[in-house]
Amino acid sequence: MNLGLENNKVLITGGSKGIGKGIAKAFLEEGAEVGIVGRGIEALDQAKRELGNVFIYQGDVSKEEDRRRIFQEFISDHKRIDVLVNNAGGSQGSTTAETEIAEFEQAMQLNHFSAVHLSKLAHAEMKKNYSGSIINISSIFGRESGGKVTYNNAKAAMISFTKSFANEAIKDGIRVNSVAPGSILHPTGNWQKRLEENPDKINKFIKDEIPGGRFGNVEEVANVVVFLASDKASWVVGASLNVDGGQSRMNM
């Protein structure tokens, strides 16, 4: 695709592996200048070796001080930010009754508050140029029940934030949207581990739960993200787009 993203300055959290790394690759192929954020320097270095000309920023986005430092380092390196992709996330805990409140709080810090804070920081910079795109990677399980309850709750909050902030930020020329992946297969993900551990069970899950008949891949998510970041999506504001092969049970 040629989406007019050449020389755009793009920051992607959780960008050292999986969906985040796939998104980084897609932006690089569009000619953008890309920074990726991750907690582990080894994974960041490996991603840089694989991706090539990418900037790396080490830190834990569940911590406010790390978010501020990383963002300022990015602005210092690139002078502006055109696209923010809030991709960092994860799940922990079990059922509501068996999950400690601290795990709910951790999930909100990682999946939700990191996105809110970085979006506020990006908004303050983007509005100087009356231009920008913020894309939050949520989940179909933020739109309906499913997955671990801590993750489900945090991703639901992210989708709600996307819509409310979109209506505010568009007045400053900034579009805010979210992408809701379904079950995505990649080497470092949970689905790969489950498939290796019990292929019969997972193949039955695919047959029963995914009308498309297979797992999605990171490229299919990344293609939607770069589209949303581009002017081709200029009238898409506050949307949450499923990328799930029909897996979601919602009718909207």
Score class of each variant (00 low, 15 high):
residue 8 N to H: 14
residue 252 M to L: 15
residue 216 G to P: 08
residue 120 K to Y: 05
residue 63 K to M: 12
residue 16 S to G: 15
residue 196 E to H: 07
residue 68 R to C: 09
residue 150 T to S: 09
residue 8 N to Y: 14
residue 31 G to T: 02
residue 140 I to A: 08
residue 68 R to A: 11
residue 47 A to K: 02
residue 190 N to D: 15
residue 74 F to Q: 01
residue 170 I to M: 09
residue 227 F to C: 12
residue 51 L to A: 05
residue 199 P to Q: 01
residue 6 E to P: 00
residue 184 I to M: 09
residue 92 Q to I: 07
residue 13 T to R: 00
residue 33 E to K: 10
residue 125 E to H: 07
residue 147 G to W: 04
residue 212 G to A: 15
residue 173 G to E: 06
residue 7 N to I: 02
residue 200 D to M: 10
residue 108 M to A: 11
residue 164 S to G: 09
residue 7 N to Y: 00
residue 19 I to C: 12
residue 70 I to W: 00
residue 228 L to Q: 08
residue 47 A to W: 01
residue 145 S to R: 14
residue 232 K to G: 10
residue 60 D to L: 11
residue 234 S to R: 15
residue 188 T to R: 12
residue 43 A to D: 15
residue 242 N to Q: 06
residue 205 F to M: 08
residue 121 L to A: 04
residue 44 L to V: 01
residue 3 L to F: 06
residue 96 T to F: 15
residue 233 A to G: 11
residue 147 G to H: 06
residue 200 D to W: 02
residue 243 V to T: 04
residue 202 I to C: 05
residue 57 Y to R: 08
residue 195 L to I: 00
residue 91 S to Y: 08
residue 114 S to T: 04
residue 37 V to G: 06
residue 205 F to L: 07
residue 141 F to L: 09
residue 170 I to D: 09
residue 124 A to V: 09
residue 241 L to W: 03
residue 234 S to C: 13
residue 46 Q to N: 11
residue 182 G to I: 03
residue 135 I to W: 01
residue 188 T to G: 14
residue 129 N to P: 00
residue 44 L to C: 02
residue 73 E to L: 10
residue 26 A to R: 05
residue 1 M to V: 13
residue 135 I to H: 01
residue 147 G to F: 08
residue 116 V to F: 12
residue 96 T to M: 12
residue 71 F to L: 04
residue 242 N to P: 08
residue 131 S to Q: 13
residue 70 I to S: 01
residue 186 H to I: 11
residue 38 G to D: 08
residue 14 G to S: 13
residue 58 Q to R: 13
residue 30 E to R: 03
residue 191 W to F: 12
residue 194 R to N: 14
residue 142 G to V: 07
residue 95 T to Q: 08
residue 252 M to S: 15
residue 21 K to T: 07
residue 129 N to A: 10
residue 131 S to Y: 11
residue 155 K to P: 07
residue 216 G to K: 06
residue 75 I to Y: 04
residue 179 V to Y: 00
residue 164 S to V: 13
residue 245 G to K: 03
residue 25 K to F: 02
residue 160 S to Q: 12
residue 186 H to S: 14
residue 160 S to R: 13
residue 49 R to E: 15
residue 189 G to V: 08
residue 210 I to S: 07
residue 49 R to M: 12
residue 139 S to L: 05
residue 100 E to S: 12
residue 48 K to P: 04
residue 75 I to R: 03
residue 83 V to Q: 05
residue 77 D to S: 13
residue 168 E to Q: 13
residue 79 K to E: 14
residue 128 K to N: 08
residue 59 G to E: 10
residue 128 K to A: 04
residue 9 K to N: 11
residue 147 G to V: 07
residue 165 F to C: 06
residue 241 L to K: 04
residue 224 V to Y: 02
residue 170 I to F: 04
residue 35 G to P: 03
residue 99 T to Q: 04
residue 202 I to M: 08
residue 46 Q to A: 12
residue 137 I to W: 02
residue 126 M to D: 00
residue 115 A to F: 01
residue 182 G to D: 10
residue 63 K to T: 02
residue 115 A to R: 00
residue 168 E to C: 05
residue 15 G to C: 12
residue 222 A to T: 03
residue 12 I to S: 07
residue 134 I to P: 03
residue 5 L to I: 06
